[in-house]
Write a protein that binds this DNA or RNA. Structure first.
Length: 262
DNA sequence: ATGGCAAATTGAATTTGA
């Protein structure tokens, strides 16, 4: 079972890139974030025709939005309304008995202080509620993917020193994300596969003139598996080349191959 | 806390991202 995740930053604008990625890598399941469109305008038909007819979509106008595309039949589509804002940041499905959670965690604004910046408070509250949810509903045979908007390790950013007070890499966010992972019994599959030392990014700012030359990235996108699936982690790929495509998303896809035990 | 950009909405400027 191959599962991919990608913050596409507008699925309508980049539908051709999604189709290209699907054809090149043929994941069984693709999870998208920041689709930025209402369900009625989601490019469902093109994706179905391409071979991913089983879809769970949850979008809103302009912002946020998540979707799961599958080659295999899906069931038990659901979502949680964490922090109760009704924004489209989570959708879950089951496929072949495997549970998949697709999450788009709030970015959190600029100022890392919940009193000065309500968006930062929203982000911290969101993490707390997800943490509580999975601490209570311990995941089994489950995968959690998405844009979590936090780079937890020093090796997840271009400079842990210079980003110390930058939202996405502050101490409180890093600590809380690792706690969310631990209390849910999740394994960070990307780090399980590559180790904790290798420098890994999944996002490069649009503001760099040359993202390769400056290479100031962050690992904001994640694939976690429930601990029972740890032995099945077979292959992880960070598809960095898509960042060099014309009119790219600022995030790149990540994929995992899970090998069922024989 | 910054910013060399980008997208959606609405109709040139604003909001949001990170």
């Amino acid at each position: 079972m191959k599962i991919a995740t990608w913050n596409i930053n507008s699925v309508r604008l980049r539908i051709q890139q999604v189709l290209k990625f699907l054809k090149e890598h043929t994941p069984d399941v693709l999870c998208l974030q920041e689709t930025k469109t209402q369900d009625i305008n989601f490019p469902a038909r093109e994706l179905a025709t391409a071979g991913w007819p089983h879809q769970a979509i949850r979008g809103e106008k302009s912002y946020n939005g998540v979707a799961i595309l599958s080659r295999l039949p899906i069931e038990n589509v659901s979502h949680q309304n964490w922090v109760g804002k009704g924004d489209c940041r989570h959708i879950a499905i089951q496929v072949n008995g495997l549970e998949i959670h697709n999450i788009y965690l709030p970015a959190g604004g600029d100022i890392p202080d919940r009193d000065d910046n309500p968006k930062f408070g929203h982000k911290l509250d969101f993490v707390s509620e997800v943490t509580e949810y999975f601490a209570t509903n311990k995941p089994k045979n489950s995968v959690l993917v998405g844009d979590l908007n936090i780079a937890p390790l020093a090796s997840d950013v271009w400079s842990t020193k210079q980003l110390k007070n930058v939202v996405s890499h502050t101490d409180i966010e890093r600590k809380n994300l690792l706690e969310m992972q631990q209390l849910g019994g999740w394994i960070d599959a990307v780090r399980e596969f590559f180790g904790t030392e290798e420098i890994l990014y999944s996002w490069w700012s649009y503001r760099a003139r040359d993202y390769i030359a400056s290479d100031r990235g962050r690992r904001l996108d994640h694939i976690w598996v429930s601990c029972d699936l740890a032995p099945q982690i077979n292959k992880l790929e960070i598809h960095k080349n898509t960042r060099g495509w014309e009119k790219p998303s600022d995030h790149v896809p990540i994929s995992i191959q899970l090998m069922p035990k024989v």
